[in-house]
């Protein structure tokens, strides 16, 4: 084992892992993050905590992770390269690990253009592949990125993102390969709506044997309304929402759309369980965390293993 993390243990046990996410509040509100996390307690193995998601200022992922840790749960520290240079990143990684946070997700992040501070400088000192490499070297070589030795190196279980739906599609398997080469232990994918395309990507992943080198978690986001489905299709870069899904959502009365969205998610999980190389699910119910337990339960992912945390 490379780490003490719960996620590594769940993957090692051969069970499907389940993660979800909490977006920290846009204010100094501890109770908000605690309330959200509690909804997920017992239903997921670990909880991603976003880092200035969509380039909007929120409580720091690190601080919110500490609150979640204090609940006896396992947070996943998300970190984007947009806002921090390598000094700041490594400092936070040391701090987080010292607080018992031992899983992280290394991202480049949405461009500031999308957020509430479009005038901010975007840092991008390193990119997400180099970020993974840095955290791996901190753990396995016990060295900072600059080369100096670390006293008590942080043993992070390292995650990265993959978007099988972004362009150019033919590059997306190779991009995953680069992240694996850099040292990522697990992958959480972009929300999957176009299952055919995802399966095609997975074919490419298996052709290269990459599914044996990394634990891939399929990203699932339930849609609340047909409006949300349309918005994601049109406005969110790199999101692939097929027209049939929008039709299906539009085909049910407004008050039933949320249920339909949940049903679609559960069907997706059921189908993706059969895909060789899918090792778990990352359920991102954006501002809809209360629905995660129902999805996990109805998708047959309960009970979560207790012995690892």
């Amino acid at each position: 084992m490379k780490t003490e993390s719960v996620l590594e243990k769940v993957f090692a046990s051969g069970e499907l892992a389940v993660t979800s996410e909490c977006g920290p509040p846009r204010g100094a509100l501890a109770e908000k993050i605690i309330e959200k996390a509690k909804m997920l307690q017992g239903y997921v193995d670990a909880v991603n905590v976003t880092d200035n998601q969509t380039a909007m200022v929120r409580m720091s992922s690190f601080a919110a992770c500490v609150f979640i840790k204090q609940l006896g749960m396992d947070p996943i520290l998300q970190m984007v390269t947009r806002d921090r240079n390598r000094l700041a990143m490594q400092a936070d990684i040391l701090g987080a690990y010292a607080h018992g946070i031992d899983i992280m997700l290394c991202l480049s992040g949405d461009h500031p253009h999308f957020g509430d501070h479009p005038m901010a400088a975007n840092v991008h000192d390193i990119d997400s592949v180099q970020f993974v490499q840095m955290v791996r070297d901190m753990r396995d070589k016990g060295r900072f990125q600059g080369g100096d030795e670390i006293l008590n190196p942080p043993k992070m279980y390292i995650g990265a993102a993959a978007n099988p739906f972004a362009d150019p599609f033919e590059l997306r398997v190779a991009r995953l390969a680069k992240k694996i080469k850099a040292g990522t232990d697990f992958i959480q994918t972009q929300c999957i709506y176009n299952l055919d395309k995802f399966e095609k990507w997975m074919d490419g992943v298996r052709d290269r044997g990459l599914h044996e080198k990394v634990n891939i978690m399929a990203g699932i986001t339930p849609m609340k309304t047909v409006g949300m489905a349309r918005y994601m299709k049109k406005r969110v870069p790199g999101m692939d929402v097929p027209d049939e899904l929008i039709k299906r959502m539009a085909g049910v009365p407004k008050e039933k759309q949320a249920d339909e969205g949940i049903k679609i998610s559960i069907e997706a999980i059921e189908r993706l369980k059969e895909v060789e190389g899918v090792k778990g699910f990352h359920i991102m119910a954006i501002e809809w965390e209360q629905k995660v337990p129902e999805i996990v339960e109805r998708a047959g992912l309960l009970p979560r293993p207790k012995e690892f945390s």
Binding site: G109, H111, N122, H124, S128, V129, A161, N163, A166, P168
Partner: peptide, 25 residues
């Protein structure tokens, strides 16, 4: 737009950058 050295971010769409559809990725 993110000075990535190892490949396209997840926002690259139809050859264009996530930041602005008028900019090539």
């Amino acid at each position: 737009a993110k000075q990535l050295l190892n490949g396209p971010c997840g926002g690259s769409t139809n050859g264009k950058c996530e930041v602005d559809p008028d900019i090539d990725c």
